[in-house]
Design a protein around this nucleic acid. Sequence first.
DNA 1: TTACTGTTTCGACACTTGTCGATGTCCTGC
DNA 2: GCAGGACATCGACAAGTGTCGAAACAGTAA
Lengths: 122, 122
Amino acid sequence: MSNLQVASLPLLEPEAAAPCCPPLTSAPLSEEDSVRMAAMFKALSDPVRLRLFSRVASHEGGEACVCDIQDVGVSQPTVSHHLKKLREAGLLTSERRGTWVYYRVAPNVLAAMAGMLTAATG
Amino acid sequence: MSNLQVASLPLLEPEAAAPCCPPLTSAPLSEEDSVRMAAMFKALSDPVRLRLFSRVASHEGGEACVCDIQDVGVSQPTVSHHLKKLREAGLLTSERRGTWVYYRVAPNVLAAMAGMLTAATG
DNA sequence: TTACTGTTTCGACACTTGTCGATGTCCTGC
DNA sequence: GCAGGACATCGACAAGTGTCGAAACAGTAA
């Protein structure tokens, strides 16, 4: 059941994860797209998760182990629970190296979400 | 007890929502900013709300009355409930004109949220 | 006034979520 | 082998959320 992928570099198909949904302002969202999109926003709808995500995203080297970011005011199991949610939402990837597990931001997801929020500018 | 609600909306000022928080990738998010930011994402974390918001945002003239957008598969009170949540989050504004209540996207909020997701590395 | 329509609020319910302590798993070092 | 640290999972609980029908509120027209 171990699903620790993404150990490799984004050399394969980096664009594949990006195309989720059209911009919110371009046309009424389909029911299917709304479910997908809501799941991504939901992953960022908790302050603790947002701080964990931000700590990973802003960490030097683009990655951080749990020990680097777990001081956010909740217990260690809760931190692990939130990191799992971010992983399941496709926002973070994880990789075990020796004793530590390193997290990094999944490629393109931030740009994809920003694209959904960006007006057509036309 | 409660007789003034929709027409005059003393909820959140549209301008105040824009300069909310720095990009997630620039630096670890403060606890205070994470709470503010999570609330905005939370408002868009439900498929029904997302569809309602999209219908308002993509409607001609930039506004829509409830009757234009309420066909999203849930009851009308539920629609009203979700619209209230979007209003309270500062994402939508409402105005009553005669029989109908018109909703429109609050200015700047979309750009602000997109800015939080946009990597500073450019 | 009365009747009718559009929208919001109320009250209740099932379900989900965030949190914790205890426990389990994986790896390193002795 | 054993001990210990890093992280994940389990089980349980309080609190929050989405949903509905019923009712109330706001406005229009007869």
